[in-house]
Write a protein that binds this DNA or RNA. Structure first.
Lengths: 249, 249
DNA sequence: CGTTATCTTGACCGTCGTCAAACAGGGTGG
DNA sequence: CCACCCTGTTTGACGACGGTCAAGATAACG
């Protein structure tokens, strides 16, 4: 995975969000960018850090996370290939949460100053990056609704639906079947549940006939039913039109 | 409350977040802006709307909110005087949540196109608006941790601490005593609890000696203890340095 | 093949939700 | 001025969803 591939991925992603000017594309192609591989659960950014770079996930998965005073962990966001990692804190003086790799992951790092210059010089690029920030914020709001107001069954189903649709819209889906990159404990931390209850709830979803599992491989056997149980409607993902098959069905 | 006062408020707010160029300040002063009064629980923006304006709260309170399929409500964010309301969806093609007035509120409306032109022409203004967006996103993340991983007592205490500090940092606090603009039902909807349990938890906080109540008037009698119970530390608010007294004590 | 992380299951328990009724306050209109 | 609402608060009895604790079963991995 080279610098060029990283920047190409960035251009492709940002193009989804705004009509980039030719100059903006050229400026992105000229960005400095270094590649780093991170092992599972390795930290990419820590709470309290001064943000110095903007990262993009090239392969693998990452997540945002925050710890309460007594050590409980809340996973705030899942990031899949193509997602930006630090836009959320680019302009703040200290990072307010942690970012860790979920699986072995390759990330591209672009210095903060370079991103800032890009945004100042090219409103269309600034616009696109802002849209990325806004969409992640929208997803976080849906998660807050999910954790605050849905029961365990709906909550878990919702996370699985969201993950499926997001993967699918990036062309990473295998049509309703995928290897979930989270342990049940991590699922619990994302959902405000315990791993024990996640386990029971997964079995309940199986019993309802919405999915089958082998190890962490999930395949949906009743997508409509899953959406119904999850109370899932993907408007909050702000996907580029007709991008996803799953949205319609 | 005139257009000029509204724009002055905007300049003051944005100056907290970025060094505005003189040209940017002039451009802001030239923005078109209309004032609207909204009655309690009146809608300011609805889910599905195409965003057409960026609003700023001039007086009173507002909140973001989202409904689940079975009608449960989750309050996502509280907005106090000086806060922007629509930055969160400015660049998206549809709004993904509702915004309602909590009390009678005056809001200033600036057309989306004017804000967009401002941001394109003045990077420092764009920067400041982005910071506002990022801070609200940071607060939403803390709420997700709060709802997902803290028990009712800590959760409620946390919301009260946050509200106090934010009010204080805008110079709207009355030193640890204020009229809470939320009903217990609304508190429950913000915390993922029922109004009945909010009531019991408020009494528990009184019993712990951290606050006294008369009607909705709250006065802290043990601020340190409140912070301890709430597991509250205000870094996530990204306040301009030393702005708040409460942060230190 | 041993070691460790993850998953699975059961028994039990507690926090918080549900339902329902009584109570307080504030406005309105007779 | 008082009856009447309407909204919001308070309280109690009870139940359930999900947490805790603990042990055993699998799977991953060096």
């Amino acid at each position: 995975m080279s610098r060029e591939q990283c920047l190409e991925m960035l251009v492709r992603k940002l193009s989804d969000y705004a009509e980039l000017s030719e100059a903006a594309v050229a400026a992105i192609d000229a960005l400095p960018c270094t590649i780093r591989t991170v092992e599972p659960s390795g930290y990419i950014v820590r709470e309290g850090d001064v943000p110095t770079a903007c990262a993009i996930v090239l392969s693998g998965f990452a997540f945002r996370q925050k710890l309460s005073g007594d050590g409980a962990r809340q996973i705030l966001s899942l990031r899949i290939p193509g997602d930006l990692l630090d836009a959320q804190t680019l302009f703040l003086s200290a990072v307010d949460h942690n970012v860790q790799a979920l699986t072995r992951a390759k990330i591209g790092l672009i210095p903060r100053s370079a991103i800032q210059q890009l945004m100042d010089a090219h409103p269309s690029a600034a616009h696109a990056i802002t849209v990325d920030i806004l969409i992640e914020a929208s997803i976080t709001r849906e998660w807050l609704l999910n954790v605050g107001r849905r029961n365990a069954l709906a909550r878990l189903a919702h996370l699985l639906c969201e993950f499926t649709v997001r993967m699918d819209s990036r062309g990473l889906g295998v049509d309703g079947a995928y290897e979930l990159p989270l342990t049940q404990e991590q699922l619990g931390d994302a959902l405000g549940l315990t791993s024990v209850h996640v386990n029971r709830t997964l079995k309940a979803l199986e019993a309802e006939g919405v999915l089958k599992r082998q190890g962490r491989r999930i395949s949906f056997t009743g997508w409509r039913e899953a959406r119904r149980i999850a109370d899932f409607s993907p408007a909050y993902l702000h996907l580029p039109d007709t991008r996803s098959e799953m949205v319609k069905s």
